[in-house]
Design a binder for these strands. Sequence first.
DNA 1: AGTTTCTACGAAAACGTTTTCGGCAAATTG
DNA 2: CAATTTGCCGAAAACGTTTTCGTAGAAACT
Lengths: 339, 339
Amino acid sequence: MPQKITLKKIAQDLKVSISTVSKALRDSHEISEETREKIKSYAKKYNYKPNNIALSLKNQKTKKIGIIIPEIVHHFFATVISGIEKVANEKGYQVIICLSGESFAKEVVNMDMLANGSIDGFIMSLSKETMEKQDFHHLREVLNQGMPIVMFDRVVDGIECDKIIIDDIAAAHSATEFLMRKGRKQLAIISTVDYVNVGRLRTQGFKEALEQRGMSFDESDVLKIEDAENCTTEIENFLARKEYDGVVAVNELFAVIASKTLKKLGRSIPGDVAIIAFTDGMLSRYASPTLTTIGQKGEDMGGLAATKLIERLESKQEEEESYETVIVKTSLIERESTP
Amino acid sequence: MPQKITLKKIAQDLKVSISTVSKALRDSHEISEETREKIKSYAKKYNYKPNNIALSLKNQKTKKIGIIIPEIVHHFFATVISGIEKVANEKGYQVIICLSGESFAKEVVNMDMLANGSIDGFIMSLSKETMEKQDFHHLREVLNQGMPIVMFDRVVDGIECDKIIIDDIAAAHSATEFLMRKGRKQLAIISTVDYVNVGRLRTQGFKEALEQRGMSFDESDVLKIEDAENCTTEIENFLARKEYDGVVAVNELFAVIASKTLKKLGRSIPGDVAIIAFTDGMLSRYASPTLTTIGQKGEDMGGLAATKLIERLESKQEEEESYETVIVKTSLIERESTP
DNA sequence: AGTTTCTACGAAAACGTTTTCGGCAAATTG
DNA sequence: CAATTTGCCGAAAACGTTTTCGTAGAAACT
């Protein structure tokens, strides 16, 4: 009811000019102590706070960061957001989140909406459909307007911006190597279709690790899942076909389904089969048996992305046009699913 | 580099006035077809999009919804956000998210920041600390300024606003009743400290169900957990003290820890002990055994909250001052942890 | 010819700030 | 006493829109 109070109202009530009020509240020496105090106490009494929109318009910056990700109900993305929010908030920024739902069209319209003044810069991870279409005109448009982007996880070459990724090849390599050191010889990998970068790269790391040890790599030991929602029977068929003693899964969902399947097939974990998964989330920690995982450090990635973006926003305007790709180290967390 | 294009630039380039450009782009009949086409094609060529901030300032509405929640790395909250985002986006709104991290202070400053023009209304779930302190001045301030709030899940009486909750008492009641119908007689509940509403209410539902069947309720069968991070030993001690044949847990984390503990104690699930949990998340679906749960319909709650808020925002200003509390029905999803 | 009605456009206000500049009076200086 | 500085404040522009109002010229009427 008391409506939001503005500089103008204070000025009217106190019979001074708007500029005087503004200066008084910002402790300008131009204003006499007497008027200053009068104005400040009046403002305090009515709980005056400057209007953010007006400030944004004036300053041509919003102090807001736009985040565009495929889904939020994924532990990894949730941790990334958490990391972004934490450092953004520390530096006086707020985050505004849009979900693409893995759809190219939604990604584009969301970006368009945000790009028109709502935010100062983007942090994003591309949708599956975007990766598949290889259409990045929306990214280029935004960059052309001088708005910085930081990409993470699902990134793409050929776009000039900062990127935060994990070394998927190396991580998969070390996971595979880990299994081999434990004496496992019949290894499989449950991955995603190739146009999802992380799936392709992790498969490659798996392959390289095998070949480095002089073991043969066979495409039939790779399961490429397209639809994560309905992957159970696919995984069941895959694991029933051959007796593996080690499985790498590119996310914890695939891993826990594999684990259940293997138990159903009468095979013990980690006795008969060892499992190692990417994404150190809730499932890995509380499944039975608990899963050995490659931690993706989502919170770190988010924090780094936010730091990079804000740095670029606050540096005196593109003084340096060199973009950086940060590779975040993964960690191998040993649990019960490996011996 | 080409900098964002504005009405003013178009006007200068085309030697017409700003108003002409604005009208032409909005298809005003006041402008001749010729000029209209010229302006529109020029605008299209340079990809003109009106500046959101300027529009917000002019229209005194931002088309943005502020969300304040304790944490985002909780499946329940993630689903709620997803639900909010979906309907908000459909209606042309965007969501801006702030995390309180269960801290009262952060909740207050975040609310303050958002309330100063950045958003049109709030959707929020209170932090634990706020519930404990019972200090709601920040909510009242915002409401006093005429900005609507919709609260969900962790709500509080005495604040006049719309609320979306589940009927915790009834849900706990039916969960408990479900166990008793399966013949279980020694029941325990793993809950939270009382100032967290959901913990208190669910415990009450548990108690009522017992008493309704003429069974005795003993405080010693209630475990109240304060710190969810380090609850394992607490739960272990609690379950070792007495041989229960049925356990209700107020969230899936407690349930899965209980499940592991019981297995360690040599008791079979659901043979010796049946478990039922609140929150139908990833853990419940993929734990071993999978957990019977009370689904909280986070996405529905979020969708409802957004619908209510937007309704109120777009109704011609507080015509009706009657607030509503919507109770979302829970669902009981049977899985392996109950017979 | 004089009056009215269109047509097509521009000027200006408004949203809420911050900041630059200018000005008036009093106080200080030469 | 005249000249300059100082203290204190207000006017106005700017950010990018939309919208109301005004108006010049042309066309249409009496």
